[in-house]
Design a protein around this nucleic acid. Structure first.
Lengths: 256, 256
DNA sequence: CGATTGATTGAGTCGGCTCAAGATTGGTGG
DNA sequence: CCACCAATCTTGAGCCGACTCAATCAATCG
């Protein structure tokens, strides 16, 4: 496990979203932080808790946000990957309304909350970059409400696969449409409001029809145009132009 | 139709969320704006459009946000009432990823976008107040993903009724748990991912069991404890302590 | 090697949908 | 004030997508 000494990675990230000047970048890079590794299913944030003294930025790995009903049913409300801030909400809200857990082994930079907060308010360019981050998160939630509320099982699964593939690609985590999905079928069900049994049947059906190639926990997208159509996937809501301005690779041509 | 000459109302609203000093308040009150009335179902924001030159603040009436699937199914993703900003997203995002429409007759203040944006970035207290607004919106989206993804019809309807009643109360729009709901059953269905037919049957069932009193478009909550339990409603996600610090009236005792 | 976690498959059930027909309601023009 | 129209609400009948329950298989790991 290598170590990092400053937040250049985070500063670069913010620079993609707004025009940070040299001073902004230096200030961001110099933010106090702690480098930390978490095991799968470790909690980053726990519902009902007051904010932690830090705000976690993902360096590598995946995490997910979830809420529970009183009957114990779980709904995953978003997935996060390298480059995402895991608890922007806690920069300004007094209590956690949901939990965040590591999905895979997770590498984070725990940035000092008060320092980040001050920077968000006192440095306009940094503030704007964080605003964009927060607003895109909200946009993704809206799309998920639509996904879970108005699409059938097949479209839901197709849609979430598209989203994850495109976001991984935008984050530079994968190069092609073919990727390893580190989620269990139960987690996929919790993200789409389905049971794991039905996720299984739906994946099989998508595979049979040639949209994906899937065995065990490996998923590759076979036919982008088909799956995008079936999943009613329009990447507009990801606001990629503002988040990852210069998309390289094969997917970029698919989503102009 | 009376007219307003400045944004004192908006400044007061922001003051509930963060500590604005005299200068902040004066600056907010002096923001350029236009007073406007919209008819029911008029569009405030249209999906796919670039941002308008203003950002609308609701003075009275209700509005809703929605998205459509490619098949034309509609999902309402949030409801807004007096005191809400309708397009905070467009302060920093370049394209609308959803539409906003008036639900009832709607009175708004169209605040100059660039001026508000500058104020959000340059005045920390204003920035913080807007952050809180945006983060609470996001929290509500998350709860809706859970509502639509993991609760059955009865709980979904109960939950949304609780949310609307509590938010109306917090916004000072109603005094009691008994309120007129200006939504059609079809709209209620679009907000909960159900058909209007099933909304109808569900409302009838809730009425029969004494949770609500309902005839035509009038809904009164009969038994708060029951409906709150059936709807799995926990107002934590509304972050009322940060949004409406001093709740008056009968509901406040129910949600400490 | 046993144990645990996740994937797979079958059979049966049901919540919520579709389709379709009336009944109400509110608004409008004469 | 009434007749009429367009929404909206209401109710019934039948169906189906997704769920539940339950068993089996596969992979991983101390």
């Amino acid at each position: 496990m290598s170590s990092i000494t400053n937040l250049d990675f985070f500063a670069r990230r913010l620079s993609q979203r707004a025009a940070l000047d040299e001073e902004d970048r230096a200030a961001v890079s110099a933010l106090p932080f702690q480098h930390r590794y978490l095991n799968p299913s470790a909690y980053v944030v726990r519902e009902g808790e007051p904010p932690r003294p830090h705000c976690s930025f993902v360096l590598s790995g995946l995490a997910f946000r979830h809420k529970l009903t009183v009957h114990g049913a779980r709904q995953i409300v978003s997935i996060h990957l390298a480059g995402d801030l895991l608890d922007l909400q806690h920069l300004f809200l007094n209590i956690a309304d949901h939990s965040v857990q590591a999905l895979t082994e997770l590498e984070v930079a725990d940035i000092d909350r008060d320092a980040l907060r001050e920077m968000a308010l006192e440095r306009p360019a940094v503030g704007q970059a964080l605003w964009i981050d927060g607003l895109v998160d909200a946009s993704i939630y809206r799309e998920w409400v639509l996904n879970v509320g108005r699409r059938d099982a097949r479209a839901r699964i197709a849609h979430i696969l598209c989203e994850i593939a495109v976001r991984m690609h935008a984050a530079g985590v994968i190069d092609a449409a073919d990727f390893h999905l580190p989620m269990t079928q139960e987690q996929l069900g919790d993200a789409t409001g389905m049971t794991s049994v039905h996720v299984n049947r739906t994946l099989k059906a998508l595979a049979k029809d040639g949209l994906i190639d899937h065995s065990g926990r490996w998923i590759a997208i076979q036919d982008w145009n088909k799956i995008r159509r079936e999943g009613d996937f329009n990447p507009l809501y990801l606001h990629l132009d503002q988040v990852a301005p210069h998309l390289p690779g094969p997917l970029s041509s698919m989503f102009p």
